[in-house]
Lab assay of single mutants.
Amino acid sequence: NSLAEAKVLANRELDKYGVSDYYKNLINNAKTVEGVKALIDEILA
């Protein structure tokens, strides 16, 4: 998966839960796919 794909999928996942734009910005600023995954795990914990 590319970083861009990971960000799109992460933001879709956040949308399902009604997560605020603050967290979407964190996702969009992530530098690695692993970073995106770690943020998602933390946000949805």
Rank of each mutant, 00 (worst) to 15 (best):
Y17P: 01
D15Q: 10
N11F: 15
L26Y: 05
A38G: 05
N28H: 08
A10R: 01
L39W: 03
Y17N: 05
V19D: 04
D41L: 15
T32Q: 02
L39D: 00
A45S: 10
A30Q: 08
R12V: 09
E34M: 09
N29D: 11
L26V: 04
V8S: 12
G18P: 05
D41W: 14
T32A: 02
G35K: 13
N1K: 08
L14G: 03
I27D: 00
K31P: 07
E34W: 09
G18H: 10
Y23L: 04
V8L: 14
Y17F: 09
L14W: 02
A10F: 03
A4N: 08
G35N: 11
A45D: 06
E34S: 07
A38Y: 10
K24L: 05
Y22N: 05
L39V: 09
S2C: 04
S20M: 08
Y17W: 14
L14K: 01
G35M: 15
E13Y: 15
L3W: 01
I27H: 00
Y22G: 04
E42S: 13
A45N: 12
Y22I: 07
D21Y: 12
N1M: 14
Y17T: 04
D21E: 14
S2H: 09
K37G: 04
V33K: 04
D21R: 13
V19A: 09
A30E: 07
K37Q: 10
K24W: 06
V8A: 14
R12E: 10
R12M: 15
A45Q: 12
N1A: 14
S20G: 11
T32V: 01
L3E: 01
N25G: 09
L44G: 03
K7V: 04
V33S: 03
D15P: 02
L3Q: 00
V19R: 06
I27N: 00
K24Y: 11
A6W: 15
L9K: 11
Y23A: 04
D21Q: 14
L14T: 02
K31F: 10
A6H: 06
D21K: 13
E5I: 14
N11I: 15
D21F: 11
L3N: 00
D15A: 14
Y23S: 03
R12C: 02
S20F: 07
N25W: 14
E13G: 03
A30H: 02
E5P: 02
D41R: 15
K16V: 05
A45H: 09
I43Q: 01
K16R: 11
A38P: 00
A38S: 09
L14H: 01
L44P: 01
E34A: 12
L44F: 07
Y17S: 04
A6Y: 13
L26P: 01
K31E: 12
D15R: 09
K16D: 04
N28L: 11
V33N: 03
A38Q: 11
A38E: 05
N25K: 12
L39M: 06
N1D: 12
L39N: 01
Y17V: 08
A45T: 10
A38V: 08
Y17E: 03
E42A: 13
Y23H: 05
I43P: 00
V33F: 07
L9C: 08
E13L: 15
L3M: 02
I43G: 03
Y22K: 09
